[in-house]
Design a protein around this nucleic acid. Structure first.
Lengths: 214, 214
DNA sequence: TAGATTGTTAATCGATTAACAATC
DNA sequence: TAGATTGTTAATCGATTAACAATC
């Protein structure tokens, strides 16, 4: 009985299920019960069954889950069988690293363009793509119609560029700028990544640890 | 009435408060009420007051919060007034980008060493630090005593290197390898960053959007 | 069939929101 | 003092866990 709206708690766990199931496939595991999977993932069997049943009954009573089948089903839910087109804006250190480090093709997406306003790096090759002037964004988007934009730009420019990209048809933003992107247009998806915040979560833990030890 | 243990929901919001308060300081704002702050952050006044009161009463009835003071208090809680020492393991694209992109000094930390097993990049300068052979890790840690390790290494090596680092006195891991680090030793803090998972959360949203539109 | 394990409902737990007395 | 806004308790909401009938 698939639900209408899925809570973000569940959604954030899906990629992790997908990752672990991928590992199990590599290891040659063909079936797994929710209990076994929960032990590997430091989760609970109940939670896994609840999560999966948001999308449908992928298991079989008395047997468990077929690993290959479940992996594929979750992949479909996440959209890795799509062929989205992504562009990357801002080819500084982080932008280049993302372009080279993330295997977009494994995740239902092709990176088809990289843009920067800094003329000194135009033409440079990153992940097989030449860095283009930001001024070419409009014509590129109008002809290639990418759905996803990866933003690796300074926070001052983020909101302005994002608004421009929405008008060019971008539907999803993976935002690495140190700015909480807010899109007032509906029907736009935003994933803000704050690496600095993540680091501070770590130092909080460390600080707490040290305070406790004293 | 500060609490003993703070829920991770609260902790994960602290860096965001810290960031927004930093922005307010830049803008010259000296005081703010929980209601005003909640509007800027797309949060609720109740949640902000609850969160802050986990750590103490930083506000004043009838007045609100002193922005500078609150920023500093949250900074202390997060540990930005400390002087932690961090090392980075794995100076590939992502490792280099993290070294260059994250302002560790703003976050109570100095990056003091970069290590890689690839001899062809030894001696290269990244963020003012020369890349050292991974074989020098032991002697370096024993003399410099860093507390934090940033792992930008392939997943196959992650667990092994992490265990080694724990024995060398590392207390906190910022882990970018595509692997869920599990430390069996107690009193070790781990922050796993899964950029691939974050991207899949985005494609989930996009896929749902497109399915709905049809 | 008997055993195992799911799908699903019910119970519990925790987090968020609302309300208000305390107080600046 | 009166108005504003906190700190904190109570109410609500949602997420997780437990339990178990359904069923492979």
């Amino acid at each position: 009985m698939p639900k209408e709206v899925i809570s973000s708690s569940v959604i954030k766990r899906l990629p992790r299920y997908y990752r672990f199931l991928g590992e199990l496939i590599k290891q040659g595991v063909t079936r797994i019960s929710s209990r076994e999977l929960s032990e590997k993932m430091c989760s609970t069997a109940s939670q896994i069954r609840q999560d999966l049943n948001c999308f449908g009954g992928f298991g079989q009573q008395g047997y468990g889950y077929n690993v290959l089948e479940l992996h594929e089903e979750i992949g479909k839910i996440l959209g890795v069988d799509r062929n989205y087109k992504a562009i990357l804006i801002g080819a500084g250190n982080l932008g280049k690293a993302i372009a080279l480090h993330i295997d977009f093709s494994k995740r239902g997406c092709s990176l088809i363009g990289i843009f920067d306003s800094n003329s000194s790096i135009w033409g440079q090759d990153v992940a097989g793509i030449k860095i283009s002037p930001a001024s070419e964004l409009d014509s590129f988007c109008l002809s290639e119609k990418p759905e996803i934009a990866v933003l690796c730009i300074p926070k001052q420019n983020a909101q302005q560029i994002a608004n421009r990209l929405v008008n060019l048809g971008i539907k999803a933003f993976w935002n690495f700028s140190h700015y909480d992107l807010r899109i007032d247009y509906k029907e736009i998806v935003v994933e803000n990544v704050h690496l600095g915040d993540s680091f501070l979560t770590l130092t909080y833990g460390l600080t707490t640890l040290i305070n406790k030890a004293q």
